[in-house]
Each structure stands twice: as structure tokens, then as C-alpha cells.
Amino acid sequence: MLTLIAILLDGLIFASWIFIVAVGLTLIFGVMRILNIAHGSLYAFGAYVAAWLVGQYLSAGYAPMGSFAVLLLSAIIVGVPMGFIMERGLLRFMYGRDEVIMVLVTYAVFLILEDAIMLIWGTDAYFAFEPYSLLGNTEIEALVFSNYDLAMIALALVVGALLWWGLNHTRVGKYLQVVIHDRELAQALGINVTRVFTITFMVGAVLGALGGAFTAPQISVTPGMGVEVIVLAFAVVVIGGMGSFPGAVVGAVLVGIIRAAAVHLLPQLELFIIYAVMALVLVFRPQGLFGQAEARKI
């Protein structure tokens, strides 16, 4: 029983973390048809800026609780300008090229940003652990959970709800949905696709950085931290259906629970099982659990 609770909560914590990263990835793919490998770098930048800013903030003697606002702020300062520069300064010149070329362009950006991190922050690890223990713990029999981790679940819910509301109840969101559904139709309707692209990419970038910023207080932030995340987020996106918002939710929960179950019950399978699930889903539903099937072109 306790094992079940542990698996469920560990799984949801992991799911929340990967959801925040993956939903940005799936949004960008859905709207722009770009599988953004540089999303991993945004995650890492978010973590670095957060660790650095929180350190500055706390050493200046401000109220510790305010550090959560600093984490949020870090994601915005990273995501907005970097998203804007990447989309306006580089990607827009590539629109119309093959999807694979687009992936490679973001791969090149990823390589560049990996070293940029070392240029800016050096090779030393950064840590700003304070916010992690600020919220105290919750005890469930033998288990102790950090409330910070549990708050990640709440954060993921808020992010999800905001995105859902944004997509369904704002004008930009509705434009986005049209673009996701049919880009040519959107243009025909007079939607400014260029602007939609820029906004989407910035929102996606903020989400990537947000995932990193809120991971920062848990870990020692080091170069190379974005590499592992990106391929996990890919798995979530592919399982859920590329470009599908509910897909990202379900994909993240599925991956989180399965991984947690593996760690508790069969630690040997931890890495293997995530990709096995991804392959299984692709075999039976190549478009992912919530993806739209595409008609074959004639």
C-alpha cells in the first residue's frame, strides 16, 4: 500500500517536471512543425539563471519566500528574449525547409548554447538549495515528501490550466488552434501566422526555462544538464501525440508513473521501460495517444 502511494506520488512529481518541459516542446511542434532540440538548452539556461539569481537574491537578505517569485522571473527573463531571438533571428529564415533540416538547425543551436553556458557561468557547478527546504515536508507513514516536490505538481496543474484556458478562451489561442489544425486555412483566414509563430516560440521557450528554473533548487546545476531532459521530453511528446496538449498531460503521467514503478520494483528497467512504452505506443498508434492521424498525400 505504502509502495503504491510512493509510486503514485513519485510518479506524479516526475510527471509534473517533465510535463512542464514537454508541453512547451509539443506546443512548438504543433504550431510550427519544429522539433526543437534547443529546448534542452533553454531548460539549462533557466536552471542556471535561477540558481544564480536566487543566490544573489538571498545573499542580499530579502525574504526567503520571495525566492519562488525569483524562480518564476528567471524563466521569463530566459525564455522571452531567447525565444524571440531564436525565432526572429534564425528560424524564420528556414521556414519551408524540410522538417529534418529544421531539427538539425535547432541541434546546431543546442550545440552552440551548450558551450555558451560554459562561457557565461564557467564549468563550476552552481547550487541554490534554499527554496527546496523552505516549504517543509509532508509525512505519510514512513514516507517523507518535500512539499517543494508536491508543489511542483500544483505548478504543473497551474501551467496546464493556464495553457488550456489560453488556447480555448483567448483570441491568440484560437488563432493557434487554427494554425495547428490547418496552416493554409489560417493564412487564408487572414491570421498573421508570422506573429503566431513568434508568440508560440516565446511561450514554448518560457516553458522550457520554467522546467529548468524550478529544478534548479533541487540539484547542483552543471553543464550538460539539458541533454538528458530533451530526449525524455521527446518521449513524452511522442507518446502523447506530437502537438497535442492533452497528449502531453497523459504522456507525462504515463512516463512518470511507469518510471517510478520501475525504480521501486525493478530498478534495472528504469531507463529501458520509458522508451519501450514509447515504441509500443508508436506501434499501435503511430500518431501518439492523442495525435491526429494525417491523411496520405496523393
Binding site: E270, L271, M278, A279, L282, P286
Partner: peptide, 22 residues
């Protein structure tokens, strides 16, 4: 297209997962 690419990725990461843990 991308599904082909991703399925290949999934299988390669499965092998990676097995090797790393064995």
C-alpha cells in the same frame, strides 16, 4: 517522416537503457 525518425530513436534508446543497466 518524423514518426519514422522517432521510432528509430525509441529503439536506439531502448538498447541504450538495456546496456547502461546491465
Amino acid at each position: 517522416e518524423i514518426f519514422f525518425a522517432m521510432l528509430c530513436l525509441a529503439f536506439s534508446m531502448m538498447l541504450y537503457g538495456v546496456l547502461v543497466k546491465t
